[in-house]
Simulated scan of single mutants.
Amino acid sequence: MSKFILLLILIQTSMQEKMTIFDFSQETSSSGWYVVNDGVMGGLSKGQFSRENDMAVFKGDVSTDNNGGFTMIQNQFETIKTNKFKAFTIRLKGDGKDYQFRVRSDKNQQHSYVYQFSTTGEWQEISVPFSSLAPRFRGRSLEMPNFDGAKIEEIAFLIGNKKKESFKLLLDRVSVE
């Protein structure tokens, strides 16, 4: 009997839990998000964030005029410890374009940890291993380790494909597992 209990304990401790960070079917998950357009650098891109049909919607137009070319939504929050987990899982529906998923372990740090992904136009579940989030600052790679997964204080989604384009990204949920 004790071998059985020990086996159960080992199985339970080795199983990864899943924690939902944002579930956009819940209205509360939509608060705190804000748009950062390239206007901070003189650009003319216009992104919008809204909640429609229990989904978060990030849409707009990217412009390369005036040396622009990106728009982003982000959310800063109190520290969430993620050291028990190995990856982010994002359920989304894109428009066939490329996007970046970005995190910061400290909302005051200058750099973000970035993972670029492509969308298919269908609903997808994107898995982002912590070890795949590379440090970047203003589009440049940094000579430092990838995301260690200990904690997060900011999540963002960015589009900036170096071309003029309209876009629409639907977000269902963001979790860690």
Rank of each mutant, 00 (worst) to 15 (best):
E27G: 11
N108V: 02
M55D: 11
F4A: 09
R138Y: 13
S50L: 05
G160W: 02
V36Y: 04
D38P: 01
F130L: 04
G139M: 06
S29F: 03
D98V: 12
S131A: 08
S127N: 11
Y34L: 15
T64D: 03
D106N: 05
I9Y: 05
I11C: 14
F88C: 06
R136G: 13
K97I: 08
R173H: 11
K162N: 02
N67E: 09
M1K: 05
L169G: 00
N161D: 01
D106K: 09
D54E: 09
P145S: 13
M15K: 14
D106R: 03
S50D: 02
L6C: 15
T20R: 10
K151C: 11
Y34K: 12
N75A: 12
Q16Y: 15
Y113E: 04
V57N: 00
I9Q: 14
G43P: 00
S45A: 07
I152N: 06
S45M: 04
Q74S: 10
S127D: 11
K163T: 12
F130W: 01
V57G: 06
E153S: 02
S29A: 00
A150R: 14
L169V: 03
G96V: 09
S30M: 10
V57T: 07
G69R: 09
L44T: 15
K84F: 11
Q110K: 05
D98E: 08
N66P: 13
Q26L: 15
V57S: 03
I155M: 01
W123P: 03
M15F: 06
E27M: 06
F24V: 10
I126M: 14
F137C: 06
K81I: 12
V128H: 00
I90A: 04
A150Q: 07
L92G: 10
F147L: 12
L171R: 04
Q124V: 00
F147H: 01
I126S: 07
N146V: 05
E154F: 11
G121F: 05
G47T: 02
D148Y: 03
L6T: 15
E165R: 08
G68H: 04
E143W: 10
L44A: 15
L142E: 05
Q110I: 02
G96P: 04
Q116I: 07
P145F: 03
E17W: 09
I21F: 12
T89C: 14
M15A: 11
Q16N: 13
N146R: 06
V62D: 01
P129N: 00
H111K: 04
N53T: 14
Q109W: 05
Q116T: 14
S175A: 12
M1G: 15
N146E: 07
I155A: 08
Q124K: 04
N108R: 01
N37F: 05
F77K: 12
M19G: 10
D65H: 13
L7F: 14
D172R: 02
A150W: 04
A87N: 10
F137H: 07
D65V: 11
W123V: 13
F4K: 01
A87E: 00
I159R: 02
R104Y: 05
R104W: 00
S14I: 13
E154P: 07
V103Q: 01
F157M: 01
N75T: 10
I126P: 08
I80P: 10
S105M: 06
I126Q: 10
A87Q: 09
